[in-house]
């Protein structure tokens, strides 16, 4: 296996970068979308229920099925991969953002309004920073989840390490089939762990010391 890695280090490195870049970009996009939706939703219990319902139901849709559905209008390539990965990444962040924002102590919001902060300022300076640890937990869940989904996206010719797994599958029994699959799988696990550590550090750096657990 080591020879396999050394021989193909450039290809593997390239696919690893592609994989991580797909996941990171989609998670960033998903975070923006999810926080936007959560901000619209969290003040109304009805819309909050709807948002929670959508994220619960959305998570039940199998990723392979969604990728299949997306192939029809968009064809092979990066577009269905990005849409599917972003879709799944939105759901945990959305749920946590709604829970986090709704969990902000109302007396603090009143306090902020009471000293003359506008609604927008209250949201940006008080509510989002206080909800941030919960939102970040959602981002970590999302990231772990879509690392695996991105692997399946390789089947619709999306970029990333899934390509190694599928090439192993297509040449099963062949010389390097096992190596390719093993390298692809292990690389995804390792990169997922690295991303989790990175997010943990981001959390340390972006969470106020006053609310750190």
């Amino acid at each position: 296996m080591w020879d396999f890695v050394v021989d193909r280090r450039e290809l593997i490195a390239f696919q690893a970068v592609q994989h991580v870049s797909l996941v990171v970009q989609c998670v960033l996009l998903a975070t923006v979308i999810a926080i936007g939706l959560a901000v619209l939703a969290y003040r109304s219990p009805k819309v909050t229920g709807l948002a929670n319902g959508i994220s619960a139901i959305g998570l039940t849709i199998p990723s392979f099925a969604l990728l299949g559905i997306l192939l029809a209008p968009f064809g092979f390539g990066i577009t269905p991969a990005v849409i599917a990965v972003t879709f799944y990444a939105v759901l945990p962040v959305l749920r946590n953002a709604v829970v986090g924002l709704a969990g902000v102590d109302q007396s603090l919001v009143e306090s902020a309004r009471g000293i003359g902060m506008s609604r927008a300022a209250t949201l940006l300076r008080i509510e989002l920073p206080l909800a941030w640890p919960v939102i970040l937990a959602g981002i970590r869940v999302s990231t772990q989840m879509v690392m695996g989904i991105a692997a399946i996206a390789a089947y619709v010719l999306g970029p990333g390490l899934g390509g190694l797994i599928f090439s192993g599958l297509s040449r099963l029994g062949g010389a390097n089939a096992l190596n390719a699959t093993l390298v692809g799988t292990i690389a995804i696990v390792l990169l997922a762990l690295v991303l989790d550590v990175v997010l943990l550090l981001v959390g340390r750096l972006t969470t106020s010391k006053g609310i750190r657990v």
Partner: peptide, 17 residues
Amino acid sequence: RRRIGYVIQAGGLFPHM
């Protein structure tokens, strides 16, 4: 409100500041 001070129970301090 910026001209009127407002104090609530437990101070209503923002925990992240």
